[in-house]
Design a protein around this nucleic acid. Structure first.
Lengths: 247, 247
DNA sequence: CGGAGTATTGAGGCGCTTCAAAGGCGGTGG
DNA sequence: CCACCGCCTTTGAAGCGCCTCAATACTCCG
């Protein structure tokens, strides 16, 4: 786990689950460059406003997509976890991507947008798969917006933890009941639009309600049904493979 | 204006500005069905959770994409204005669209997803244009999330009004300094995650600061630079045609 | 052992919500 | 034609959730 080959295989598997791929498509994807790069935490891979003609395969750690306000505060708009490709939109529109930073130390593979575009042009099935992948990304973003707009801190945190849990499970990084969240409370605050102080209090409340247990970066969900109910969490938007959902 | 032909031409023009189209592509798009349907306000075109194999071209009025919570509250995640196509994601993933409602009375054209998909498969340029269109939609959603998460009511409202103004101008529905916003204060609240009461107070404050004037559904921006500054508004994310931006 | 980032906890303040009520406006039917 | 009804807008008052400011402790790492 956490090799660039694993990450690529994981990505391809998820792509295939979203939209059928031929063996040729899979083979073409596996020929993508796979030179891993290690980055320190809180590193801006793509600065706000900076164009960049690469997409990024996450091998380990978490990449956060963000928008920065003039006063320097950041709002994270997505978390990209191992096995995800960040900013696949750039295949269609190289200039208009979001800014991107690491949370903790991370390993990534830089994939030239041209390479992906060439693949997409060569295979309609791949085009469709990329597009669907981007559509799921947009669906996650919708939920993120709902979370920010309509839920209080407790519910917002619960929904967030449920999402990370299910996505970790989806990529075989853990289970929804026990997973690693490589983010500081301050970074969680940038995702949920809460101050670090209130993130701390909210987590404490969830712990004291016996819903979760936190041990360093390991999150254990003690009562999944309750947590999901509090977060009003319905995993449908993640477009899980039915086989996974049955389990 | 406000004929289905106008709406389709407007959509095609914007698509072409995002990504070059051949005359054949344009001709193919213009052959799409254009049977307009009139709908009353607050009508759910696509219910939450409901699949639907159509996209919707807006001819008049506004369509709001939304997510509904269990308790019935809604969060709007996008406004689709005349000349927009709502839910173009369905071309790639028919099952996973968002719910969609009208704000006030609206006229739309239902476009079968299959028809769009057939066009996309026949022309790589169109595929790319659709995808780019969807990417802009996602960029708008990012800003929406930032708005909900990081700005107070005054700033949030200012950003919202700036976005609607620029998009109205983009589709020749008005100018950024004077445009029609076909939404009640309650609906604006569902977009900004504010109560109707606070929407009212916030608008009042903007009026009393001599930033805007409201006359029925007509919004006049008296001091655009100040409003944009308060809303921290930078139109770059809307991917305007450079010619428009120069003006 | 020192230092920086992170976690934790307390106290006070503000922005938005909730609850409540009245007035305006357009549409419909007697 | 106008009276009525529903929806929207507007305003007031009180409460609460989250922020801000502040201080202390913890942990990792050089």
């Amino acid at each position: 786990m956490f090799s660039s080959i694993w990450a690529l295989e994981n990505f391809v598997a998820r792509l295939g689950a979203l939209s059928p791929l031929s063996p040729d498509d899979v083979a073409a994807l596996m020929r993508l460059p796979a030179e891993p790069v290690r980055l320190r935490g809180n590193f801006d891979i793509v600065s706000p406003g900076g164009g960049f003609d690469h997409a990024f395969l996450v091998v380990s750690g978490i990449l956060a997509r963000f928008v920065q306000l003039r006063d320097g505060r950041r709002q994270f708009t997505a978390f990209h976890m191992p096995g995800d490709i960040a900013d696949i939109h750039r295949v269609a529109t190289p200039l208009a991507g979001s800014a991107l930073q690491t949370l903790s130390t991370a390993t990534i593979v830089r994939v030239p947008a041209n390479g992906l575009k060439a693949l997409a042009l060569a295979s309609p099935a791949l085009t469709r798969a990329f597009w669907t992948y981007a559509a799921v990304d947009a669906a996650v973003l919708s939920q993120w917006a709902v979370n920010l707009g309509r839920r209080d801190a407790r519910s917002r945190m619960a929904h967030f933890l449920c999402e990370i849990g299910v996505r970790s499970e989806q990529s075989a990084l853990g289970t929804r009941n026990e997973f690693i969240l490589e983010a500081s409370q301050s970074q969680i605050g940038d995702a949920l639009a809460l101050t670090p102080v209130h993130v701390n209090r909210t987590l404490k409340a969830l712990r004291e309600s016996n819903l979760i247990a936190v041990d360093g970066r390991i999150v254990r969900v003690i009562n999944w049904p309750s947590l999901a109910a509090i977060g009003d969490f319905d995993p449908a938007y993640l477009q899980l493979d039915e086989r996974q959902e049955a389990a």
